[in-house]
Design a protein around this nucleic acid. Sequence first.
DNA 1: TCGATAATATCAGTGGCCTGATATAATATA
DNA 2: TATATTATATCAGGCCACTGATATTATCGA
Lengths: 151, 151
Amino acid sequence: MSSLHALTANDPYRMLGYALKLAQQALRTHLDTELRAVGLTTPQYSVLAGLELSAGLSNAELARRAFVTPQTMQAILATLERASLVERMAHPVNGRIRTTELTAAGRSALRAAHEIVANAEQLTRDAVAPSDPETICSALLRIAEAMRSEV
Amino acid sequence: MSSLHALTANDPYRMLGYALKLAQQALRTHLDTELRAVGLTTPQYSVLAGLELSAGLSNAELARRAFVTPQTMQAILATLERASLVERMAHPVNGRIRTTELTAAGRSALRAAHEIVANAEQLTRDAVAPSDPETICSALLRIAEAMRSEV
DNA sequence: TCGATAATATCAGTGGCCTGATATAATATA
DNA sequence: TATATTATATCAGGCCACTGATATTATCGA
């Protein structure tokens, strides 16, 4: 108990959770800044990139793939639709599903965004040196897995 | 150029930026869920913990320490004040500053929250094994630094 | 077949992050 | 001293994340 408290009271910069938040926030801010030039936010890019790989997904399926709630994905899709970057239409068979597909404008924005995101990824990989990017990546995925299986 | 695109098109799970987002989001969701029992969100805990170490900080100073904008910190403080967890008052000398201090209720919530956060930190450290937590932590801080110095 | 269950979409409200803009107090400088 | 600059606080609006609640469609089982 008291050892747990001691852990918290230490230099916050040596806390894994704090460092994780700092790194993610910095990357997100960097990406948002760069992506602004093509009129996208980071979550919007993420959804568009997903739709490029598998067109016609439902809101629920997109939410599952992004690990967010359907309500959250709903809001993102509404914004993308307002910006004419995606098109939503009734599913040909299943009456409760509305599918989403990229528009030409969406595809165009995505092309420019891919460059930006790839550059940020390279910056990130360079930054972890001398650690191996694969090692860091695996450790991060284990954190995500551990948190998900908890509670 | 084409090699950059290839990097993006790969399995997203092997992208450092994606893994970073997944890990941080999972930790944040876990913490928010646990902290709900004491009526706090993760950012709220973070601010209260900061005030415990240095009472009477200004909104601007709190924002700088949390790496968020003054407007964001303003909103967090407004919520905390509404919940009677902090008290804001005019600075004794500097007329444009409003200082913030913990209330008794704030201190009480913080005590319970410290346990929860320390437990999550331990879970995280366990999850990165067999990697060394210090190695991962340092790599994350280098990412944050690299993104900040960019642009 | 009918009723229960599950899946999907969506509305409403909250919190935390941002940008942009404005008002005021403190400080530096001409 | 008077003006310009800087620091602080705060309002307004937007996006993304959540919970809670509701309506509709599919599906499963008695």
